[in-house]
Design a protein around this nucleic acid. Structure first.
Length: 953
RNA sequence: GGGCGGUUAGCUCAGUUGGUCAGAGCGCUUGCUUGACAUGCAAGAGGCCGGGGGUUCAAGUCCCUCACCGCCCACCA
């Protein structure tokens, strides 16, 4: 396909139609294994793993951005000559997939419970086979140059083996444990979720003030008797629900239940202590009241007991410094089984743990007469009863933060449950260290702090989920002796007593497997070639929203098992928002489908629009006009190529070009050629720098500016003249070809399709290897050199051309209409050489060039003419009969005024001794040169005004 | 309650180590079928770079402070 002979004779279609070639090239790259990475010991390599998209997902703009950024760096490095691996794959997304499949089952009128575990998993796998590849196919339309031969899935054999291995090793090391603790339960998903899966939302609620009667000593004695307890010592676990493994302090004040105090109206008591709560229903599980030890209002009550209204439980009043005397009444009801704070306090004080809400969000048997009620129904009922019995003192509006499930948005229920955890402190240490030492760097740097803060305050990670789709926990329990066995393969009997065993029902948190992604995908725990060559990876590209979920966990997992970080740089990008700056979401319906954008504008336009003008790490707004602009740029490039090709017919690149050698300044006869090559070199330098700093947005903008505003707007126009001249034709052809080639190469990582397509049309140097662009060399600085002389002279030329265009526009001469112009030049010969360019680009005919140093010049100076001044040249537009001298004078005076004020500034600056002494030399020189140039221009303008005044008289 | 980001032309946003940095695109105005491109060309209007203070010869660029907007983290019931 990329055969130069054929390409040379093909003609480029007139319009840029991305659909006509994008899929063709993807297929070509795939068919020729150009994405495939090979283990080549000794060769420098570049590797990266994809953040595996969920199999449930359809491509959204976030993926499109993430993928585009990765592909840019992958293609860039591949072109730089690195053996480049981009390892793709998908995530089983345990909880998300569950939701989708359960939804599907519900539509069929059944449920996971009805189906049972085995059948459910069958359906899940079917679902995965059917839909799991959709998203990866979509990545291909974007141009993602992944090595698909290495595609992995978090639940495939290779990855699953790593998961089991990690679990067992961590368990054996004591870093994974099982225990009863306070966890976040999502009643919607019916599973425990980890701390970071809880989203806190400020919610309008109420603060309920409830008075709890304080028992007199006499009543306490009666209550004890009623509960069948002695008169002294702690009450042993009476009324306790689930307790934790942690032993209670021996001297604990325990609660106990007393029948005689159940449903007693408030009027029956004399002394009260009032608490404030946002969740009255949890009072059914209260086992203490706490006050601040310093609080004078309550000092006398500490150590005494209160009655829990409606329930009749007798609960101690304790002192704890964590109680804020300022909040509410300064007295807090303590529900150790349903509040994380209270849980801690329960442990500290040896309180009972009474669970009154179950995993479905319904009240348990412990809730007595409220058992079976849904938690909010129960709240209402409890309030009603409290009110009726006279315990509810008042209700205030209160805004507070409530935990919601990040997946289904249900209100999370904190409760005590037996789960598996990863002990985080020991794992966080090395993960923190490696970032602090700069061995892993976040880009932009500010995300380092976010990471560190999280790692420093990390709590144990709850990894078990009450789901079926995922990696089942490799733990078995003996039916007879209760022994638990953690093993790589299922034991057939209990290792302790030989009894029958059953496997833990739960699966692991989805992120447990993705945490291993950088090495599990390369075959760990085996010592594979891939692992040795491609690990650790170079960069990781992802959004800031999953730094905790994924990035942090990959780092600590890798530190534990690979003894080194999984990647060198973490590139963080922001969110893609809609045109109004809102997050794109399904519920808002404001999401933009990348595939539709591709369909309309092409993948290249989408890619460019996603990175152009965006700084790494910050959110961006996405809107049609942006893609349109990118598409227009593609069209521009297309047509610049079309123009060039039409002028390259019959021309063949010199053999010297095959080795990549470029013409030297001294070998070029046209200043314009020297100029554009100098501009190209600067562009290459800037792009190189931007990409090394991981700022693709700057890189693409630089390339667009070069191609459009320098190559197309100026050089191509210049070339129309130099091509027409037989003496400079061949040189111009070479330069057109060269600049175009380099531009396509520079642009390829950003817009792979159009560049590969256009590249295929460009003639290839005879005898050179005919490689597709994707594996051609990326332009690097230093091959060409900056050419100060050409930049200066062509800069002046452009100034003159713009001057003429300005004057013409001033008096409304239509574009293209030929007008005469006169130039008074310090170097007439030079300007004589530029004359054809000036004529063409500013529609000048005829053009007269006079010598400024001619002694007779004053007499030759045009009288009736518009004037503009450039460096080394005065330009006149003599429009017989049209010029209004007064108007012209005032126009010139305006420019004089502007120039003057600029001169004043630089003059002041240059008169400043401190500036001259302290500023670097090159800065001073710059100012001096500028000042001088401006002075010359100013003088010319003043002379002109003077002359016009004389003429007028 | 902590932490972070933003505040630059009508709109969306760039501005690395302080020294042409006052920019781009879109939009707007005016004129153009200029043989690559109307998905275009040419010209133009438009900004005390959020307020205040400071450091410096020199500050959108560094420091302090205030004001909005947004995000993240946090066990205030």
């Amino acid at each position: 396909m990329a055969n130069s002979q054929d390409q040379g004779s093909r003609t480029l279609p007139k319009a840029y139609e991305p659909k006509s070639f994008e899929s063709k090239w993807y297929k070509y790259w795939m068919d020729n294994d150009l994405f495939k990475a090979h283990v080549v010991p000794g060769k420098p390599r570049f590797s990266i793993v994809i953040p595996p998209p969920n199999i449930t997902g359809a491509l959204h703009m976030g993926h499109a951005l993430d993928t585009t950024l990765q592909d840019i760096f992958v293609r860039y490095n591949r072109m730089l000559g690195y053996e480049t691996l981009w390892l793709p794959g998908t995530d089983h997304a345990s909880i998300a997939t569950h939701a989708r499949i359960e939804e599907m089952l519900a539509e069929e009128g059944t449920s996971r419970w009805e189906l049972g575990r085995e059948k459910f998993l069958e359906r899940a796998w079917e679902w995965k086979d059917k839909y799991g590849h959709i998203i990866t196919d979509q990545l291909k339309t974007l141009g993602a140059s992944c090595d698909w031969s290495r595609e992995r899935f978090t639940m495939d054999e290779v990855c699953s083996r790593a998961v089991i291995e990690v679990f067992v090793r961590l368990y054996e090391k004591g870093l994974i444990y099982r225990g009863k603790y306070m966890v976040n339960f999502c009643p919607g998903c019916r599973t425990v979720i980890s701390d970071i899966e809880v989203e806190h939302q400020d919610t309008d609620g109420h603060l309920y003030y409830i008075q709890y009667p304080v028992l007199s000593d006499e009543d306490l004695t009666k209550a004890r008797a009623d509960a069948g307890l002695g008169t002294n010592g702690a009450c042993q676990g009476a009324g306790a629900g689930q307790a934790t493994d942690n032993a209670a302090p021996a001297q604990a004040l325990r609660s106990f239940k007393s029948k005689i105090h159940t449903n007693t109206p408030a009027g029956g008591y004399e002394e009260f202590i009032t608490v404030a709560t946002t969740r009255p229903e949890t009072m059914l599980g209260d086992t203490a009241i706490a006050v601040n030890p310093e609080d004078p209002r309550y000092g006398h009550l500490v150590g005494r007991y209160a009655v829990l209204p409606l329930v009749g439980r007798i609960i101690p009043i304790i002192a704890d410094k964590h109680v804020d005397p300022e909040f509410g009444t300064g007295a807090v009801k303590i529900t150790p089984a349903h509040d994380p704070n209270d849980f801690e306090m329960g442990l500290r004080h040896g309180l009972d743990f009474v669970s009154v809400i179950d995993t479905q969000g319904n009240m348990t048997e412990e809730a007595g007469k409220y058992a079976g009620l849904e938690r909010y129904e129960c709240r209402n009922k409890v309030l009603e009863d409290l009110e009726e019995l006279g315990y509810l003192l008042k209700v205030e509006n209160h805004r507070h933060s409530v935990g919601h499930c990040s997946r289904c948005d249900s209100t999370v229920e904190p409760l005590i449950s037996e789960q598996w955890f990863v002990k985080m402190k020991p794992m966080a240490e090395p993960a923190l260290e490696v970032v602090r030492q700069g061995k892993v760097e976040f880009v932009p740097e500010r995300f380092t702090k976010i990471y560190e803060h999280w790692m420093e305050n990390i709590r144990d990670w709850c990894i078990s989920r009450q789901l079926w789709w995922g990696h089942r926990i490799p733990a078995w329990y003996c039916d007879d002796c209760g022994e638990s066995i953690v093993a790589r393969t299922a034991p057939d009997k209990c290792t302790k007593c030989g009894g029958p065993v059953h496997q833990d029902e739960d699966v692991l948190d989805t992120w447990f497997s993705s945490a291993l992604w950088p090495f599990s995908t390369m075959g760990w725990p085996d010592d594979t070639e891939d692992l040795r060559y491609f690990f650790p990876t170079d960069i990781l590209v992802t959004g800031y929203d999953i730094i905790f979920f994924w990035v942090a966990r990959m780092i600590f997992s890798s530190m534990e098992f690979m003894k080194q970080p999984p990647f060198r740089y973490v590139l963080i990008h922001g969110l893609v928002r809609d045109a109004l700056g809102r997050k794109m979401s399904k519920s808002l319906g404001n999401g933009i489908d990348p595939l539709e954008v591709i369909d309309k504008y092409g993948a290249d336009a989408l890619r460019i629009s996603l990175v152009s003008g965006v700084a790494m790490g910050s959110d961006m707004r996405f809107y049609d006009e942006k893609v349109e602009g990118a598409r227009n740029f593609c069209n521009k490039l297309w047509n610049a190529t079309r123009y060039s090709l039409s002028n390259l017919e019959g021309w063949t690149p010199p053999a010297a070009a095959a080795s990549g050698s470029k013409p030297k300044q001294s070998e070029l006869s046209t200043m314009t050629a020297r100029w554009i090559l100098s501009r190209l070199e600067r562009t290459i330098e800037t792009v190189d720098d931007a990409l090394k700093r991981f700022e693709p947005g700057e890189a693409i903008d630089t390339i667009i500016d070069f191609v459009w505003n320098q190559f197309c707007d100026w050089y191509i126009e210049f070339s129309k003249e130099s091509l027409a001249n037989p003496d400079t034709r061949e040189e111009t052809q070479l330069v057109l070809w060269l600049v175009l080639r380099q531009s396509l190469a520079l642009l390829h990582p950003f817009a792979p399709f159009i560049t590969e397509e256009l590249w295929s049309y460009l003639p290839k140097p005879a005898g050179s290897e005919d490689r597709p662009l994707i594996v051609s060399d990326y332009p690097v600085p230093g091959k060409l050199s900056a050419d100060a002389e050409a930049e200066e002279l062509i800069g002046n030329l452009i100034e003159v051309i713009k001057g003429i265009r300005n004057m013409r526009a001033e008096v409304n001469i239509p574009t293209g209409k030929r007008e005469k112009a006169i130039i008074l030049a310090e170097d007439p010969q030079l300007w004589e050489g530029f004359a054809p360019y000036i004529k063409r680009l500013s529609w000048t005919e005829p053009l007269e060039i006079l010598d400024l140093n001619d002694p007779d010049i004053e007499s030759k100076r045009p009288r009736q003419a518009l004037t503009s001044v450039a460096k080394g040249a005065e330009v006149f537009l003599p429009l017989a009969g049209v010029i209004d001298i007064d108007k012209e004078i005032s126009r010139l005076e305006k420019s004089i005024g502007e120039l003057q004020s600029e001169l004043d500034k630089t003059a002041k600056r240059l008169a400043d001794k401190e500036f001259l002494a302290k500023a670097p030399k090159h800065i001073v020189e710059k100012h001096q040169k500028r000042h001088q140039d401006n002075q010359e221009k100013l003088q010319a303008l003043r002379n002109r005004v003077e002359l016009l005044r004389k003429i007028k008289e």
